[in-house]
Computed example of a mutant assay.
Amino acid sequence: MSVFSALLRIALLALLVTFIAAPQVFAPVFEPLTSHGAPAIYNQGSLVALTLSHLWTVFVATLGSIVVAVSLGIFVTRPSGLEFLPLSRTIVNVGQTFPPVAVLAIAVPLVGFGEAPTLIALFLYGLLPIFENTLTGLTQVSPLTLDAARGMGMNARRRLVEIELPLALPVILAGIRLSLVINLSTATIGSTVAAKGLGEVIIAGLQSNNTAFVVQGGLVVAMLAFFIHDAFRLIERRAGRYQSAQASA
């Protein structure tokens, strides 16, 4: 990453944090998007609180997806679990088969309004990329490497923890990154079932025909997705360098 690119990212991050913490400073920027004296800045709640709620919902749902998808990926790459691979693929595809809105419609009568149905929808939606990348990462580990580990006296558990998972980590992280970025935008629909998040800003704008609100909500979500994507790419590159160093050691 060049110095200019790094400085640009720092400047954009500072701009995002400033906007979330003190949005009224940017009122002149958004005033051209309003009409009939409508407020230029979202004024029905705290952007800080909504952003934190949005991130919390996404991270909790993604954490659940990671635990289930990685565990399932490990299970179906073991000899005892190979026959369950088709069934596992069918299960994780459910979240992608049904749109999140449909999952919300099913979940609300079961768990009520609020954060719970949104967590269910995001959890299901985030399973597929993490599962497939876990599967890819683990199956790409060289049989020669595993044979060498076996020859060193490592049992199956040690091979998994010390060899397979570290080597598969960059690919697994890529799946987690994809899941997070998808869920950051998808989480905005949670506001339709009374979940706290940045979707409230967008929905308020649509209901009041205030383009400024819609743009603000969309911009914050997009910038959060950009920075999280960027952070995970950095972690993936470092994991990849570590993997290369271990392979050459």
Rank of each mutant, 00 (worst) to 15 (best):
Phe227Thr: 09
Val221Pro: 08
Val201Phe: 11
Gly199Phe: 00
Thr188Pro: 10
Leu219Glu: 05
Gly217Phe: 04
Ala212Gly: 03
Glu200Ala: 10
Ile176Gly: 00
Arg177Leu: 07
Asp230Pro: 04
Leu167His: 14
Val201Gln: 10
Gly197Val: 03
Ala231Cys: 12
Phe213Asp: 06
Gln216Gly: 02
Leu198Thr: 11
Ile172Lys: 03
Ser179Gly: 01
Val215Arg: 06
Ala168Lys: 02
Leu219Ile: 11
Val220Pro: 00
Val214Ala: 05
Ala187Met: 01
Ile189Ala: 06
Gly197Gln: 05
Ala204Lys: 12
Ala231Thr: 12
Pro170Ala: 05
Gln207Glu: 15
Asn183Met: 01
Leu219Arg: 01
Val221Leu: 02
Ile203Arg: 11
Ile202Gln: 07
Val214Phe: 10
Ile163Trp: 00
Ala168Asp: 14
Asn210Gly: 10
Val215Pro: 04
Leu198Arg: 11
Gly190Asn: 01
Leu167Thr: 13
Gly190Tyr: 10
Ala231Asp: 07
Ser191His: 04
Asn183Tyr: 02
Ala204Leu: 07
Leu206Lys: 11
Leu224Cys: 09
Gly217Met: 02
Thr192Gln: 10
Ala204Asn: 14
Met223Trp: 13
Gly199Ala: 08
Asn183Cys: 12
Glu200Pro: 03
Ile228Trp: 12
Val193Ile: 15
Ile176Leu: 10
Asn209Tyr: 14
Val171Asn: 10
Glu162Gly: 05
Leu198Trp: 05
Val181Trp: 07
Val193His: 00
Ala212Leu: 14
Ala204Val: 04
Ser185Trp: 05
Thr188Trp: 00
Ser179Ile: 03
Ala212Trp: 14
Lys196Leu: 12
Phe213Leu: 04
Ser191Phe: 04
Ile172Tyr: 11
Asn209Asp: 13
Leu167Met: 12
Leu173Val: 06
Ala195Leu: 06
Leu173Ile: 08
Ala222Met: 14
Ala195Tyr: 03
Ile172Gly: 05
Ser191Leu: 06
Glu164His: 03
Ile203Phe: 14
Glu164Ser: 15
Leu180Thr: 07
Pro170Ile: 02
Ala222Val: 08
Leu169Glu: 09
Arg177Thr: 05
Ile228Pro: 09
Ile182Leu: 09
Ser208Phe: 12
Ala231Tyr: 14
Phe226Tyr: 15
Leu184Asn: 09
Ser185Gly: 15
Val201Tyr: 08
Val181Tyr: 07
Ile202Ser: 10
Asn209Phe: 15
Phe227Met: 01
Thr192His: 03
Lys196Ala: 15
Asn209Ile: 13
Asn183Ser: 13
Val215Ile: 15
Ile203Asn: 09
Ala174Leu: 06
Ala222Arg: 07
Asn210Val: 02
Lys196Ile: 07
Gly190Gln: 00
Thr186Arg: 00
Asp230Val: 09
Ile203Asp: 09
Thr211Gln: 12
Val171Met: 14
Gln207Arg: 15
Gly218Phe: 07
Thr192Pro: 02
Ser185Asp: 12
Leu184Met: 13
Val181Gln: 04
Gly217Ser: 06
Gln216Arg: 03
Leu184Tyr: 12
Leu224Ile: 15
Gln207Ile: 04
Leu198Ile: 08
Leu169Val: 01
Val193Glu: 07
Ala195Asp: 02
Thr211Asp: 02
Ser208Asp: 13
Leu165Gly: 06
Ala212Asn: 02
Thr211Ala: 15
Ser191Trp: 01
Leu184Ser: 06
Ala168Pro: 08
Asn209Lys: 06
